[in-house]
Amino acid sequence: MYNFEFVKPATVDEAVAALQAEDAQPLSGGQTLIPTMKQRLNAPSTLVSLIGIDSLKGVSEAGGVLTIGAGTTHATVAAEAGAYPALAALAGGIGDPAVRNRGTIGGSLANNDPAACYPAAALGSGATVVTNTREIAIDDYFQGMFTTALEEGEIITAVKFPIPEKANYQKFEQPASRFALVGVFVAKTADGVRVAVTGASEEGVFRWTEAEAALSANFAPGAIEGLSASADGLIGDLHGTPAYRASLIKTLTKRAVTAA
């Protein structure tokens, strides 16, 4: 790993200021960034550690909205997001216990790994990403694999999840990495059903809108029996072909509806 200057601010304002340095990057739990830096795929000249910022941590619920500070670890979400059980269960299934003790929701959403779990929960829930400058509706946030609407130097401070009537996340794990080979998050709200798919697309997380329409009319696994997810643009690798992933999308969606 190339060396860098390490900065550990105590407030969001200090962090934003520190990120003005050339080639500066924020560091949250580091469970993706540190391995990436070891491989020299990423070599920031300054790392701004966000984990000393207490205002970025915590889980709270008010008026049917669960707000999670961006620096909250997966383990804390798993333990404290009881108001949104499907989200707590998803957080408790990320990586392994030691990874969950360091990795954060803000880090995961800022990174937007195409096989990460949290993007499916955020998109499937119709969440809002709160940053130091604005609020971003989730449908405007994800912009392709490892790409988001965040500007340079912009920091996620919290994520707001409207709590649905029912929800469930089904992850089919790639057995070596434990990332989602395919993961499907289904949420049923008064406004309809959202279905978000991770792990499958070259473009990162996406909504399966045909299934959403069918499930909004009839929230039952049989409602999507006649549909099939398109394999166009899906990932094909040694773990699974695009057609296999497309098949998994439908199977996991049905399982999620059954379990919700």
């Binding site: 540190i34 790392l47 984990i51």
Partner: peptide, 19 residues
């Protein structure tokens, strides 16, 4: 490389000493 940091198990190869 698992150690406990403030009581929580973490992978010490994936955390900077300064953190």
């Amino acid at each position: 490389c698992v150690v406990h940091v403030d009581g929580a198990a973490v992978k010490s190869c994936t955390m900077f000493a300064l953190d």
